[in-house]
């Protein structure tokens, strides 16, 4: 039994890391008032680009992850152009980007024959001494490098949001773009910045799936994690630390599913695949029920900004 639990928990941090990074990227973007549904698509882009880089340059998995981030950021420019500059409906633009990315990554991945080629990828880093602690050691201190970076990254984003001028501008744009505009903040520029920065984090989450997790690439490998990240942001009421807690919860579920089957417990496979979404629905309904004050939602979420010119 203990062995089962440790094997399960040891897989949680890595699974949770992808959710956490994707949710954090979305959160950053949505705090600037842009409703972002592109996560699923951008994770696919990040996963494919990172794997492509890993296969081309061999070794340097960190470099491969950076390539994944850049690729996702690049695609997000298209989304930013649509929703910020052209003020297209943000839901429709987000969905279109997802479907585009699904087709596009399959096309490129198959064309360059990156499918099902295992790479060494990110290896676990053993932290001396700490890794020898029973149970905790294996769960927390034998993970890949990116997992260790999650908490610092969350601190950094939290700090940027609340302790810097850029963060104040970003929050004001998300809450009341008219007031921010009157205070001389360039609303389009801030939103572009937030989308690109957030998307880089989503790209990193994608790269983590291919280079960090299964260490190979196959089409549609994000498998709906991007959608769960979208729900996580709502669950977290747009607060970074709560998003991290939600990511851990979903990391637990994700790594439990295959283990239950392996342990010989007979549960229909499709039921297990469905559970994360059932939990997503429950969580969303619960937060909607609890959070009827709606005060924590960015005030201008989903609203395009057009300065009223009357000069």
């Amino acid at each position: 039994m203990m062995e089962f639990l440790i094997a399960w928990w040891a897989n949680v941090p890595e699974a949770a890391a992808a959710y956490a990074l994707a949710a954090l990227g979305l959160l950053l973007c949505e705090r600037s008032g842009v409703l972002n549904l592109t996560a699923e698509g951008l994770m696919l882009v990040g996963a494919m680009a990172a794997m492509g880089a890993a296969l081309q340059i061999e070794g340097y998995p960190g470099m491969a992850l950076v390539v994944g981030m850049l690729a996702a950021a690049l695609v997000s420019l298209l989304f930013a152009l649509l929703v910020v500059t052209l003020r297209v409906n943000q839901v429709i633009a987000g969905l279109a980007i997802v479907f585009f990315c699904q087709g596009f990554t399959q096309l490129l991945g198959v064309m360059f024959d990156w499918q099902n080629h295992p790479v060494p990828g990110l290896l676990p880093v053993r932290i001396p001494l700490l890794a020898d602690i029973p149970i905790i050691g294996r769960v927390l201190f034998e993970q890949n490098g990116v997992v260790y970076l999650i908490v610092p990254i969350f601190f950094a984003v939290q700090w940027v949001l609340h302790q810097t001028r850029a963060g104040l501008r970003l929050r004001s744009v998300g809450e009341n773009p008219e007031a921010a505009d009157a205070a001389g903040v360039s609303v389009p520029l801030v939103r572009f910045g937030a989308i690109v920065a957030g998307s880089a984090l989503i790209g990193l989450a994608g790269g983590l799936l291919s280079v960090g997790g299964v260490k190979m690439w196959f089409p549609d490998m994000a498998g709906g994690r991007g959608w769960i990240a979208v729900a996580l942001v709502i669950f977290a009421r747009w607060q970074p630390w709560r998003a991290l807690a939600g990511a851990v919860l979903f990391g637990c579920i994700e790594s439990l599913v295959p283990r239950i089957a392996a342990a010989g417990i007979r549960v229909p496979q499709y039921f297990m695949l469905m559970t994360p979404y059932v939990i997503t629905l429950v969580v969303m309904a619960w937060t909607a029920w609890k959070g009827r004050s709606r005060s924590s939602e960015p005030g201008a979420l989903g609203q395009p900004f057009l300065r009223e010119e009357r000069r």
Partner: peptide
């Protein structure tokens, strides 16, 4: 009023002050 409702009083004033100073 051109105020950001979710921000604190001090943050609203600071937002305006930042803009005027850079100007």
């Amino acid at each position: 009023y051109k105020l950001v409702r979710a921000l604190s009083v001090a943050e609203n004033v600071m937002l305006a002050a930042m803009a005027v100073e850079s100007q």
